[in-house]
Amino acid sequence: MSTHVIPHHFDNAEQAYQSSKLGFWLFLVSEILLFGGLFVAYIVFRSLYPDMFHEASGELNRIMGGFNTIVLICSSFTMAMGVNRVQHNDPKKAVMFLAITIAFAAIFMVIKYFEYSHKIHLGLLPAGFYHYDGITHPRAPLFFSLYFVMTGLHGVHVLVGMGLITWVLLRVKRGDFSNQYYTPVELVGLYWHLVDLIWIYLFPLMYLIG
């Protein structure tokens, strides 16, 4: 059963929950603006070198990117189901859904690993590390700088999300949550959906602009 004590500076559980949630939405806003800066760089350079983006994007593997999109959407679904089960006092199923979410995240990272190692092998690397002669445009390294920084930052978020989901999974197992208190699960869920949200834009912008 839940042993959660409401912090003394809140009137009641509802107020504590809403405050945590507002704080977390604000954090998600800052996350969007963090990625926003990279998207602005993408937009500017793409408007300067449209042909180069077209050519360089063709080097990315659409099948792997598309598969990863599906993996993340499924993980977002199982995350939502996990949060739902915690809210309905069903920790057994909640643990199962959270574990599946972590598994999907791991699949995503494994595919990312294969994509990255292939790019590194070919020399499709950022800026000065670039050494690939299959693309004629002299500005091609720029695309791969953006590719690695944007998908890399997203990948870091996936890893952090895996850690956070593991943490709430263990707490669900321990019986920390109930339909009266489940704030951490809900917030980790929001974080995970944002990770999915960013990939929903990264996928077409990086892989599909051909």
Partner: peptide, 21 residues
């Protein structure tokens, strides 16, 4: 309040993109 806060992110993003462009 949460709706306004989250949607404001896209407002800021629009300012960011348009001024840069």
């Amino acid at each position: 309040l949460n709706q306004v806060v989250f949607l404001s992110a896209f407002g800021f993003l629009a300012v960011f993109v348009l001024l840069t462009l």
